[in-house]
Amino acid sequence: MNAPAYNFAYLDEQTKRMIRRAILKAIAIPGYQVPFASREMPMPYGWGTGGVQVTAAILGPADVLKVIDQGSDDTTNAISIRKFFAKTAGVATTTATEDATVIQTRHRIPEATLHADQVLVYQVPIPEPLRFLEPRETETRRMHALAEYGLMHVKLYEDIARFGHIATAYAYPVKVNARYVMDPSPTPKFDNPKMDNCPALQLFGAGREKRIYAIPPYTKVVSLDFEDHPFEPYRFNAPCALCGAENSYLDEIVTDDKGGRMFVCSDTDYCESRQAAGHHGSLSAAPYKEKAQGGTNG
């Protein structure tokens, strides 16, 4: 077993060419969902098969890959995919956003500003933003073709009628390049403004649904809203407990069974680099203190 067990980046070259053609078409028509012949991957649907295929198709030997899941580099899914490509493509991997050339993500956009030589690959479960209101695929495709997007506002209307504000907090629909309405995958709406005029190329892959779509660099991306209920990115009223960041997306972490909890950056790389640079939050040293207390009590 000395011969490499896999082609570079797992997929065969013909498949990669097919996917690249779909990607090129997607870039040419920003926000438009391009069908592609999604392959079986050695992982179940829902674990990022779409993103993995897109990454496999664009990866070269010189690329540096970063994989995040909910902003974190060290969850099972992120680690598995990173190891998958380290093994099948032999590419360098990193957790530093700044150093990566290809970043595959599930549900987040890194906090650090992306730059022009980077590609952000999203894993997408359901690419069709109109799906929940109009289940017929034939009809939704026609609606996209004719730019009939009244239905999108019906959903936002329902939110306001029910909750008093637009309660859609993730997968918040956007209009790309003033033409196609697109589902930005289940990223929190907090990240929506980062898509607009972004220097990096953004690619979206949905494996089970067999669709690829894209936002080319520096493309206008507008979140849908009403004049009297404008789009508002989610605001947290506390800074990160570990690094003190005030404008990052936070995860809630339950710390005990008495209702104790803390809010920390969901982007682990961002949080760690800030802490390394000397920023501190209210609970920065908490894990250490707990240990010390445990020692005293025991």
Binding site: L133, E148, G150, L151, H153, V154, Y157, E158, A161, R162
Partner: peptide, 14 residues
Amino acid sequence: VSAGANVGERLMAV
């Protein structure tokens, strides 16, 4: 979908 949105849909469509 709520009655209000049912009636409002055509307006939003235009």
